[in-house]
Design a protein around this nucleic acid. Structure first.
Lengths: 235, 235
DNA sequence: CACGAATTGTCACACATTGTCACATTCCGA
DNA sequence: TCGGAATGTGACAATGTGTGACAATTCGTG
């Protein structure tokens, strides 16, 4: 069943989005009725930390980066949400982080007030959003371990494996849509360390770098060992 | 209105717990009916990462530590939940982390299956648990910034201010119920660096250390500046 | 209550990892 | 084809870690 509103110009079927996963068709109809399409070009800001959280967004196509700033300009990227990710679910009325487009992005947007009203009427929607928040928390907790305890090599290996998993890469080729600087801001490293670590993994035969925005994983098993902190066979 | 079940032996009023915050009295009655009291002695494990998540817990008294392990034994503590904190809300059926008692702990326990059934019937409970998960996520995101971007001094200053805020300290005295090792595992540092940093803050006149499990904050304003990465007046 | 053992915390020094700075190379878009 | 941006590399500095020694504190036993 295809649900459209004038605001979507027939670009995608709201009922098939992650937001509606597990919902009855009536609930999906309600969501479709309140939704609209948004687009952001690469580099544009979706919302800034502290802004009123008046919309819930789902990424339909493309990649965002979500990050927090320290007063002196230091930046920590917390993730690169791609298609199927929901943003703006936080309680508290204001966005806790900044969201910017890494690539051109297509979004489905739902007014937060309308979502909140629906949540009270549709238990499965409440559960859906609670689950989405819980999944995001689980991911953040894994990231805490990475940032707090992993070495640079373990961090980069973990990152490459995450991309491969997200992209369901079958032949080991992953596309890297974000810059080396962004990867560094995500892994708690500098751009030089990211570059040096990628070069070392290449010299060691674990990856190939045909072009800068593509990595070919040549030894997924060894990368998995590195990512989990298994001691290297020889240093 | 005091709600008790035989399982509680009159130790606390379920309706006054964080779990019931914002709920109608009938919902609170339902929760009281399914709840029971648990106690853990300092050092005991509440649940381990991977265990079935068959209970939701609220800390009534005392302090836990929640942590994740790497295969080689490295440990990252993600927080020290105290009274009012809920655990075990995650979707997915298994605990994503290990919870252990830092001090003797009193808990209120709710079977997860019963909670899930109530959630469908009581929209305010669904919202309450979604909000609790969201608050936990917001905290984890702040911690990502700390682990990924802050220096050792900024980390320790942040930690001390967090304790002061949680304990609603009026005269700057905070109680440190966790060991230096635990603080290190929480801040992504080693025990020596935690000790060195505390000693430096003491030498600089920002804190006093009357006994190892107590810190007196002498210059909260300066500590706040340090915690946020404001450049030091003179090094 | 005193004493000894165990545990925790502190300190100094050497080392390793990552950051900083400067510059070279590569890639991409006009 | 060229210029600007992004990436890669090398040398050196800084921060935090690792290690060993010692001090302080806590706990258990007599």
């Amino acid at each position: 069943m295809q649900l459209q509103t004038a605001a979507h110009a027939a670009s995608f079927d709201v009922a098939s989005l992650a937001m509606c996963r597990g919902l009855e068709s009536q609930a999906a109809s309600h969501l479709a009725a309140i939704s609209s399409t948004g687009k952001k070009a690469a580099g544009e800001t979706l919302f800034a930390e502290g802004d009123d959280a008046d919309c819930v967004y789902e990424v339909v196509k493309g990649t965002l980066r979500v990050c927090k700033l320290l007063p002196d300009g230091r930046l920590q990227i917390m993730g690169f949400p791609g298609s199927g990710h929901l943003l703006g679910l936080a309680a508290g009325g204001n966005h806790a982080y900044t969201a910017e487009a890494v690539t051109d992005v297509t979004l489905c947007r739902y007014p937060r007030a309308s979502v909140d009203r629906l949540v009270d009427k549709v238990p499965s929607l409440a559960r859906r959003l609670w689950t989405a928040t819980s999944d995001e928390l689980r991911f953040a907790q894994q990231q805490l371990v990475l940032l707090g305890r992993k070495t640079a090599t373990e961090k980069v290996a973990s990152f490459l494996l995450l991309l491969a998993e997200q992209q369901k890469s079958l032949d080991g080729t992953v596309f890297v849509s974000m810059s080396r600087t962004d990867i560094g801001d995500y892994l708690g490293l500098t751009i030089e360390t990211v570059s040096r670590t990628l070069s070392k993994l290449k010299r060691d035969g674990l990856i190939a770098l045909p072009v800068p925005d593509q990595v070919k994983l040549l030894d997924v098993e060894r990368l998995s060992e590195l990512a989990e902190g298994e001691s290297e066979s020889e240093a």
